[in-house]
Amino acid sequence: MTLPLFDDTGSTSTGAVTRLGAAAVVLRGWALPCVDVLWLSLQSVIAQAPFRRMRTPGGQHMQVALTNCGALGWVSDRHGYRYTALDPMSARPWPAMPQPFADLAASAAAHAGFDAFAPDACLINRYVPGTRLSLHQDRDEDDFTHPIVSVSLGLPAVFLWGGGVRADRAERIPLLHGDVVVWGGADRLRFHGVAPVPDGEHPLTGPKRINLTFRRAR
């Protein structure tokens, strides 16, 4: 995998790219041209599989509400973290991944140097002001050669970009509506998270931030 040359200025203007690592970038505003169709597709998904706050293996409710679409969905309960083909709330398959979701994930991955990315899972997180996501690794997937593609919609947030161990100092990367983060290769197992989301109101999402995280789970 070879990354193309990028502008490393850190600009947040649409079309600019912020490099986070050897195989990790933020594509600024990449999702903006298709935001309307993404939002409509999302409404269809959550009508079939509503947001819910799952429990951690320790029995606590997660701060961030979530749902899924695609052949597999990420779940958490007292039995641990894993992917399932069925929504535990309904016992039915997760909603099919909308084509605009899959197309955006594939195009962003290709632009970052990861060709032919075909996600089979999209974890959808809903943040309200004050909620956060602690530093963690995405390691419930079978094959770490596939990248992660993460799309930000709505309220701005600070992405915490750490190292190979949890104790490494995390960089604070501002993310705006329409930004897409892609990481894989040598950076695939970096710790990452989201700082508490500040108060605010977004014209599309209201007082919320929505994050679409695309993965190849199997």
Rank of each mutant, 00 (worst) to 15 (best):
Q99E: 15
G130I: 10
C69K: 05
A16L: 01
G70T: 12
P33Q: 02
K208S: 13
F51N: 09
A118D: 10
R172Q: 12
C122W: 13
L135V: 02
N125S: 03
Y83V: 07
R169E: 10
W74D: 02
A105H: 04
I173G: 06
P50E: 12
V75T: 02
D142E: 04
A85P: 03
M97T: 01
P198H: 08
A110H: 06
P119S: 08
Q63V: 13
V151G: 01
T2H: 12
R188W: 00
T56L: 12
H136F: 03
L153C: 04
L212C: 04
N68R: 12
N125F: 09
D140T: 06
L86A: 07
P119C: 14
V180Y: 09
C69I: 05
H177V: 08
H136D: 04
H202K: 12
F214V: 01
R172K: 14
R55H: 14
H192V: 00
V149I: 10
G200E: 00
A167T: 15
R169K: 13
I210C: 03
R28S: 07
S134V: 11
A102K: 11
D140W: 06
V17H: 03
F159K: 03
W94R: 05
L86C: 08
A22R: 15
A16E: 03
R28L: 00
P95D: 02
R216V: 11
D179Y: 02
R55I: 13
P196N: 05
D168I: 01
R172W: 04
V194K: 07
P33R: 05
T9S: 14
T145E: 15
F117G: 05
P93S: 06
F144K: 02
R190V: 03
F144T: 01
L133K: 08
Q60F: 14
W74T: 01
I124Q: 01
S150Y: 03
H61G: 08
A49I: 11
P93M: 05
I173T: 04
I124A: 00
A186F: 12
V182D: 02
A217S: 13
A110M: 10
V158F: 01
P198N: 09
A118G: 11
D103N: 13
H202Q: 08
S107Q: 14
V165T: 07
V37E: 08
Y81N: 14
E201Q: 13
G130W: 11
G178H: 09
Q60K: 15
E171S: 15
F51P: 06
D36Q: 11
P100R: 07
E141W: 01
F117P: 03
G206C: 15
L42N: 10
P57V: 14
H202T: 06
T18A: 01
W183L: 09
V128G: 08
A167M: 11
P129R: 14
R139L: 02
D120T: 13
Q137W: 03
G21P: 04
I210E: 04
P50Y: 06
L212D: 00
G206E: 10
G154L: 09
R82C: 12
L40V: 14
A217P: 12
L104R: 01
H136K: 02
A85K: 15
N125M: 05
M89G: 09
L38M: 04
P98R: 04
L3S: 13
C122E: 05
H146C: 09
F51S: 10
F6M: 07
G73K: 05
D77G: 08
T67F: 15
L175K: 07
F144P: 09
G59A: 08
H202E: 06
W39C: 14
L176G: 02
P207E: 07
L204N: 07
G206M: 15
V45G: 02
